[in-house]
């Protein structure tokens, strides 16, 4: 049995730093100073499941992924809860909408125009364009939309064409 677990353990060991890095990039501290508790939890859950129900071995990859995400989600939720408590006590971590600051002239105007133009696009194209502006790749957007990459490209370029017209009507010229 131990011999079977070898490759899975090595995968999980290789995965653990990524898991911790993702949590930290989201601003959630990984709780153990060594970060070993996450790996430990994943390990325990996988072995328990495997020993109880050997048929899970058939879809082991999918099962491991599910367990990893379950641990990840628990961690995110725990951190979110903590953050909400901090928000209730003081507002410094919440980054709530700032008090109305003095307007910065054309910069604020441009922001308003861009935001309004994006929201006036058709839903699917607006969604693709916003996700692209947020830094998602075409492949990632295609995966999220459950579309082929080609369709995602088309939707993006249609959105760009549309927003160019909308911006031009408001005196903003989009350069490719």
């Amino acid at each position: 049995m131990a011999a079977d677990h070898g490759p899975i353990e090595s995968i999980l060991r290789a995965l653990a730093p990524h898991l911790r890095a993702e949590l930290q990039s989201l601003g959630y501290p990984a709780y153990s100073p060594q970060g070993d508790d996450l790996l430990q939890e994943i390990n325990v859950r996988i072995w328990k499941a495997l020993e109880g129900r050997p048929e899970k071995k058939i879809f082991l990859g999918a099962y491991v992924k599910r367990v990893v995400f379950s641990v990840f989600i628990n961690e995110v939720k725990r951190a979110n809860q903590e953050r909400s408590q901090l928000c209730r006590s003081g507002r410094q971590l919440c980054g709530q909408v700032e008090e109305a600051s003095p307007r910065q002239g054309s910069k604020d105007d441009l922001k308003e125009i861009v935001v309004e133009s994006l929201s006036s696009l058709s839903p699917a194209e607006g969604r693709v364009l916003r996700l692209r502006l947020e830094g998602f790749s075409f492949v990632e957007i295609a995966k999220l939309m459950a579309w082929p990459v080609r369709r995602t490209h088309f939707a993006y370029y249609r959105g760009i064409r549309e927003i160019k017209k909308i911006l031009a009507r408001r005196g903003v010229y989009y350069e490719d």
Binding site: H18, A62, V64, F69, E134, F136, E140
Partner: peptide, 29 residues
């Protein structure tokens, strides 16, 4: 957005590691 990006990266990483593991003898699926 941040959380979704993390999930996407983790999912890709698991797939990549699993593919490497399959090459080392894990059951292919």
């Amino acid at each position: 957005v941040g959380l979704l990006k993390s999930v996407l990266r983790l999912s890709d990483e698991i797939d990549r590691l699993w593919a490497e593991g399959e090459a080392r003898g894990l059951p292919r699926e």
